[in-house]
């Protein structure tokens, strides 16, 4: 089981490393969206500090969603997805490996770039720390839930727009608590623990159910 998981994970990472630009586009999209907001709403320190957490999270939602479209699409087009469905391995395990690779390539960079973005919004060190932890817990949930939508819209015309219509509403709980945690850190660090606990609970729930739902969706889409 573990061997198969590793095999698919490494395969996807290798493929991404041979197409490095795809990974970088997501990251730069995130940076650009976050950098544009101060130009739109004004660069006043206090406004930015209030807006910061929300903006970073919304940008993270959009960035992870943009990348989702490619999660299964390439494998679908060259027939490797079909072969995966037909192997003697549980499909949800293969899907989980693909989602993990996807998160390592699109979610993790956002977590790592967060301090830089936090500085743009004059966030305190505490807030930046909480933001990184919240992103670390929240972005995998985004990839997991998004995978269901990516599987459902596989190979459709205008799948990207449709995907955002289907998936963005489902991201709301992560957005609310992810941004809430950062805001709460400005008042009292102890207040942030329930937020992080909830995000962790979402992650566990998503890890359990999302791969099953995605693999069911893939089977429907491949027929």
């Amino acid at each position: 089981m573990l061997r198969v998981f590793w095999c698919v994970l490494l395969r996807d990472l290798t493929l991404a490393l041979r197409r490095r630009t795809d990974v970088l586009t997501t990251l730069f999209f995130f940076i650009i969206v976050v950098s544009l907001f101060p130009l739109g709403v004004g660069t006043e320190r206090q406004i930015l500090q209030i807006l910061g957490p929300g903006v970073v999270w919304v940008a993270a939602l959009l960035a992870s969603m943009l990348a989702l479209e490619r999660l299964f699409a390439a494998d679908y087009e060259d027939g490797t997805l079909e072969q995966m469905v037909l192997t003697a391995q549980p499909l949800s395990l293969l899907v989980l490996a693909k989602i993990t690779a996807h998160w390592l390539l699109t979610g993790l960079p956002l977590v790592l770039i967060a301090p830089l973005v936090g500085m743009q919004y004059h966030l305190s060190d505490d807030a930046i720390l909480i933001m990184m932890v919240a992103l670390l817990l929240g972005t995998p949930v985004l990839s997991l839930i998004g995978a269901i939508g990516a599987a459902l819209t596989l190979g459709l015309r205008g799948g990207g727009i449709l995907l955002s219509l289907l998936i963005l509403p489902l991201y709301i709980p992560v957005l609310v608590y992810g941004a809430g945690a950062v805001t709460a850190s400005g008042i009292d660090m102890a207040d942030t623990r329930p937020y992080l606990a909830l995000l962790g609970a979402f992650l566990v729930a998503a890890l359990t159910f999302a791969p099953l739902a995605s693999s069911a969706a893939l089977k429907i889409s491949i027929e």
Partner: peptide, 9 residues
């Protein structure tokens, strides 16, 4: 639940 209770505290 999340919009009803944005602050778990």
């Amino acid at each position: 639940w999340s919009v009803n209770c944005p602050d778990p505290n």
